[in-house]
Simulated scan of single mutants.
Amino acid sequence: MNKKEIGFTMEEFQGRIQKVRKSMEERGLSLLLVNTPENIFYLTGHKSPGYYMYMCLVIPLEGEMTLVLRRGEVGNAQVYSWLEGEGLVAYDDTDDPLQKTVDVIMEKGFQGGRAGVEFTSWFLTTKNFLDLQTKLKGAEIVDASGTVEQTRMVKSAKEIEYIETACRIVDKAMAKGIEKIQPGNKEKEVAAAFFSEMCLQGSEYYGTEPYVASGPRAGAMHSSWGERVMQNGESVLLEMAATVNRYHGALMRTAHLGKPSETMKEWAKVCIEALNAAINAIKPGVTSEYVDEACRGVIERAGLYENYRKRTGYSIGIAFAPDWGEGYIMSLQKGDQRLLQPGMVFHMPPALRKLNAYGVGFSETVVVTETGCRVLGNTKRELLIL
């Protein structure tokens, strides 16, 4: 038998499953089908880059769960998940995975009723959904999106430990990347330094690549590295994440080559003030909207909202590509009246951009505490002038 490498105790996994089943009961579900890799990881520990192939965790209201997955991925499941034996059902590449899933459901004695499906999952294709409707006889298929996610919003002590370790890796990798920001160097050299240091410090593969954008490329959100040569008089916008046991911590900073313009200095000042305002606003019991207003208000009063126009932050934790965040679970944004609770973790990246000109931004990953919040990184919060 393969040696298990599970990142949590069975007690913690069982607690998560009990919460999900309680939610299932409240929704009147006799069955839940989970296709989202982050949710499957959360409940079983299974992780693999091969999640692009069909995978489904079958959760009856009572009885044992079963993970239906590609045969080639069974080895990973045997190592990283607590499931074993009949809890893992494999399909060959020439099999119909939907039929295999339905067979598993019927073997569990499913007699019809409400079957919950994650309508918002990126990994449940339209074809597979339609096949499921055809093959799962007697079932009322309903939207169960968020059933697992709502239990993921508040992190356990162990989850926070993983995120904090990822943030420490990001601090070190950011410092290594900044060393490569010199006139005449290419953006890809900064990215290479990021990748190398993150791997050496213990990061796994992560949900999104680092962003390295110099000069006019910094004016566009999510600009990644390329062959561009960095030049004196330009800003370089940097954003990156690291991951430990699939838990991410992220960081954004801005460096400037040479003397910055008054605009650049003012924009950096506003971004940092907005970030500080958000950090100071966070505490249990306040709404998501309240934190967003604290951050956005600084930017609006500076007359720069048109260069901003986005949410203040988003939940961060478990992630597989194509994202490193959990914004689909909770975002700090206008109109969101949900209350913050101790143990929630957010990445907050206020940034100002002028398309095809320049950009500046700063961020922190923070955990909500009993009295406020705690910043998980240690990189100095300032415009770095090189």
Rank of each mutant, 00 (worst) to 15 (best):
A90P: 10
Y80K: 12
V117Y: 01
G146M: 07
E107T: 06
P97W: 08
A115G: 08
Q150F: 04
L83D: 07
Q150R: 13
T147V: 14
G113H: 11
T165D: 00
A77C: 13
A166E: 01
M106A: 09
M153A: 14
E118A: 06
Y80I: 02
D95H: 04
V89M: 09
E149W: 01
L132I: 04
L88P: 12
A157N: 03
F119C: 00
D93H: 07
K155H: 14
F129L: 15
A139E: 02
I163E: 03
S156F: 05
L132A: 00
M106L: 15
V102M: 01
I105Q: 00
R152N: 05
L130Y: 13
F129Y: 15
G112E: 08
E107F: 05
S81W: 03
T101V: 09
A144G: 06
A115T: 00
D95F: 04
E84S: 15
L130V: 13
A175I: 11
K158Q: 12
K108N: 03
W122A: 14
A115M: 10
T147W: 06
L88I: 10
I160A: 02
T147M: 14
L136W: 09
G75D: 14
E161D: 13
E164T: 13
D95M: 08
D96Y: 02
G85C: 06
K100S: 05
R152D: 05
R114Y: 12
M153P: 00
A115S: 12
K108W: 05
V74E: 15
L130H: 12
A157M: 01
V117K: 02
F110N: 03
S145T: 15
A173V: 06
L124C: 08
V170P: 09
W82A: 04
R114M: 12
K127D: 10
L130A: 13
M153H: 03
K172T: 13
V74S: 10
R152A: 02
A173M: 14
E107S: 09
V79W: 02
D131M: 13
L83N: 04
T147K: 11
Y91R: 07
E149F: 06
W122K: 14
Q150H: 03
V154L: 12
F129D: 01
K158A: 07
D131P: 00
E161Q: 14
W82P: 00
L136I: 11
A144R: 01
D93S: 11
F110E: 04
D103F: 07
D103H: 13
S156L: 12
K135N: 11
S145K: 11
E86P: 01
K172I: 13
G109S: 12
V117W: 05
I160N: 02
V117N: 03
E86S: 14
D103Q: 15
E159T: 03
E164H: 08
K135L: 15
E107I: 02
D131H: 11
D143W: 10
E164S: 12
A139F: 03
E149L: 02
W122T: 09
V117E: 00
L88E: 12
D93G: 11
G75V: 10
K127V: 08
D92S: 15
M106N: 15
K108Q: 15
G87Y: 01
E140W: 08
D96E: 03
C167I: 03
N128M: 13
A173G: 10
L124H: 00
N128S: 15
T165P: 02
